[in-house]
Design a protein around this nucleic acid. Sequence first.
DNA 1: GCCAACGTTGGC
DNA 2: GCCAACGTTGGC
Length: 156
Amino acid sequence: MSTRKRYWMMKSEPDAFSIDDLERVGTEPWNGVRNYQARNFMRDGMRVGDGVMLYHSNCKVPGIAGLATVASAAYPDSTQFDPKSHYHDPKATPETPRWFLVDVAFERKLKRLIPLEEIKQHTDELGEGFALTAKGSRLSVFPVTAAQWKLLLSLE
DNA sequence: GCCAACGTTGGC
DNA sequence: GCCAACGTTGGC
């Protein structure tokens, strides 16, 4: 398997957890993801050192806010076992965990937020399958190709 | 705050 | 295994 670094997009609502929060804490277990496709990308696709773009969703100006790196291999999300947690999953047990996460480490804020509105102007280059701009897509963790990464960063 | 699009659940 | 009902996401 290739050892080349992979790239990812991860969404977060800035009211809940923003790039500034990530800068403050340095490294964060990316808990609370409860979508199988997103889980699979974290569990099966991510490796330490991979590049991450942090996207601010469900806010006044949605867009890409900063860069981070994958800082751990995937491991079970402990909030699934906690009955008091909003993310509790009664069907998950430590013996058979259902949800996995990775640690995400702050790298830098972008010089400016790249608004979704601008990203949409490059749909042709990004491709119709790009999850950020694909109609109806709500996926919160998904891969970004090297070419997409380069293009998006050129908008900074 | 609205609502379209989507994923999950559970009765049958 | 179908599918209606429900809950969530997230742009606008």
